[in-house]
């Protein structure tokens, strides 16, 4: 492994760790900001690959990630946090339990999928010969688990954004889809976050309901 590959691996691993941080975090604002950090890390990977492959697309992609994910989504979400935003938190977050479950979940799903399905995809370019695709898949499943495990609306939105981040990272590593599509995807996610933030104001937690059973 070359130094650059090691560096990208470390950043990608940091992305996964930030996902773990979000999973264990109970304060809403910290979660939103951790999502910003995660997006910036992904943008950084995009920039690094862009420099090495001398491709402008990766730069535009990175800038798009930073603007849309880093600023706009966090802006819309933070604005919707009711009351004093720095102290709003989701109760009953059992970190040890979530971490271990998340771990089991990732290990099972990612590695079954990875070994059975994705192992034959060969990454090209600077990361050729490495199995870097495991990080986006892990991130994707962490996002899904975040949605499934937590009850707060904010957390579930962040889980969705995280899942999208996993996809973006997957595309960056494997083969970036055309920019126009990538941009539309980003705008879609942004619009979804804006729309959901309307629902957020009305309903902050989600429990089982008698009317919606069966």
């Amino acid at each position: 492994m070359t130094l650059i590959q090691t560096g990208i691996y470390l950043i990608a691993a940091l992305v996964t760790i930030v996902a773990f941080y979000i999973q264990g975090e109970e304060f809403i604002r910290s979660m939103v900001r951790a999502q910003v950090v995660q997006s910036v890390l992904i943008a950084a990977i995009s920039f690094i690959i862009g420099i090495i492959e001398a491709s402008v697309d990766f730069f535009i992609l990175g800038v798009l990630i930073i603007i849309l994910r880093g600023f706009l989504i966090s802006y819309f979400l933070e604005r919707r946090i009711p009351g004093k935003s720095s102290i709003k938190y989701e109760p009953n977050v059992n970190l040890a339990y979530y971490f271990l479950l998340d771990l089991v979940f990732i290990v099972i799903s990612v590695f079954i999928i990875f070994y059975v399905v994705f192992s034959s995809f060969r990454v090209s370019g600077v990361l050729a010969g490495t199995e870097v695709l495991v990080f986006p898949l892990a991130l994707f499943f962490q996002g899904l688990f975040l949605i499934a495990s937590r009850k707060s609306t904010f957390t579930q939105i962040i889980g969705y954004v995280e899942e999208e981040n996993g996809l973006v990272l997957f595309a960056i590593f494997l083969l970036p889809v055309p920019l126009i599509i990538e941009a539309s995807v980003f705008l879609d996610v942004l619009a979804l976050v804006v729309i959901t933030s309307i629902v957020v104001v009305e309903k902050q937690t989600h429990e089982k309901m008698e009317e919606l059973k069966g």
Binding site: Y9, F20, G24, L95, A96, F99, V107, F111, F114
Partner: peptide, 22 residues
């Protein structure tokens, strides 16, 4: 403390597996 140890355990397991894959 359980959370603290869970974090350490997560790190170790996760990177045991990541290193195996990579």
């Amino acid at each position: 403390i359980m959370d603290y140890l869970a974090v350490a355990f997560t790190f170790s397991i996760l990177f045991l597996i990541f290193s195996e894959v990579t």
